[in-house]
């Protein structure tokens, strides 16, 4: 717990302090990172704590973003819009999840991929509602009842607060009894079933929660980007988020956050030099997988492990959870 408080403290300090160090562009980038971090954490929850590898998670992000875009034409109330984005994404996750979780492993991956592509096709084809391939502008304004939030810095702090809020929420969730049961189901579903837990109910719970969170991230993105397009539900976008999670470290919450940050910074950095960002991204993923040392957060673990062993302290226990977390992707 002490460790958790420490991480949260660091997050709060960096969120509040960063704008003093960054340029205008940097603040924008950091804002995007917070939104993507929420999105990546939702997938990280699914992959790292429930062992459900989805390649269609962007579907819920897009649902959230399109909810803000489409409903925002009629109702300009930030509370209603964000709440309905969360609820709609969560409900659709519940509905589709009740079917998807009947399948296991790679079937789940293939079906979620197909679902994401279905929404992609629909976003293209239902032009009257979604604007088709051209996408649509978000006309809703970010007003919580005390004036419109329009300055980049204000938006930055809003997204930063949302990000920390979600982080704490998820931290509490994974450490709650339900969170532990879900992790238990990931590690050994048949044992948990034998112990009398409803495996499907818990899987559905975590899938819906992840969907709702992705919807939340999507709604924030809608406000931030002021524009939505079918690309938000394209399977390669789902894949990019998955890369963020793997990049940062599966099986932790802070891993996807780091992954999202590094991914977006790299993307911006490399794209400014070459058009071949996709090629480099793919190569990075291939390398990362081949090396097989997990994500960034696990590298920290390795250093720590080495450090502790060299100092000869008794603490072998600390290296254990890291090993276990790596198991997730093996």
């Amino acid at each position: 717990m002490k460790n958790n408080l420490f991480i949260i403290l660091i997050l709060i300090i960096s969120v509040s302090g960063l704008p003093f160090l960054l340029s205008g562009f940097g603040v924008d980038l950091a804002t995007e990172i917070y939104i993507m971090a929420i999105f990546a954490m939702s997938l990280g929850l699914l992959m790292g704590f429930a062992g459900m590898v989805s390649l269609g998670h962007a579907a819920f992000f897009a649902i959230g973003a399109y909810t803000v875009a489409i409903l925002g034409q009629f109702i300009n109330n930030v509370y209603i819009l964000i709440l309905s984005a969360i609820i709609i994404a969560g409900l659709i996750a519940l509905l589709t999840g009740s079917l998807f979780i009947r399948t296991s492993n790679f079937y789940f991956l293939m079906i979620t991929l197909a679902f994401g592509q279905l929404l992609y096709a629909l976003a293209w084809q239902l032009e009257n509602w979604t604007g088709g391939a051209d996408g649509m502008r978000v006309s809703a304004t970010l007003d919580f009842g005390f004036g419109e939030i329009a300055s980049p810095l204000a938006i930055y702090y809003l997204m930063g607060i949302a990000f920390i809020f979600v982080y704490i929420l998820l931290k509490l969730f994974v450490n709650s009894p339900a969170g532990r049961i879900i992790k238990g189901i990931m590690e050994n579903p048949s044992r948990m079933a034998a112990l009398g837990y409803e495996v499907r109910v818990y899987k559905l719970l975590v899938y819906s929660l992840a969907g709702a969170l992705a919807g939340f991230a999507g709604s924030l993105y809608g406000y931030f980007n002021m524009f939505v397009s079918p690309d938000l539900t394209y399977w390669k976008f789902s894949g990019e988020v998955m890369i963020m999670v793997i990049f940062g470290g599966v099986g932790t919450l802070i891993g996807p956050v780091l992954g999202a940050g590094l991914f977006i910074i790299l993307q911006n950095f490399i794209s400014s030099y070459t058009e071949r960002w996709q090629l480099i991204l793919g190569a990075i993923l291939v390398l990362l997988v081949l090396v097989g040392k997990g994500g960034i957060i696990h590298w920290f673990g390795y250093f720590k492990e080495k450090f502790i062993i060299r100092k000869g302290t008794k603490n072998v226990e600390t290296s254990k959870p890291i090993e276990e977390e790596r198991e997730v992707i093996t």
Binding site: G239, I246, L279, L281, G282, V286, V289, I329
Partner: peptide, 11 residues
């Protein structure tokens, strides 16, 4: 699977 996914980007 992840590796083949990376390959789709590359190819």
């Amino acid at each position: 699977v992840l590796l083949t996914f990376g390959l789709t980007f590359v190819i």
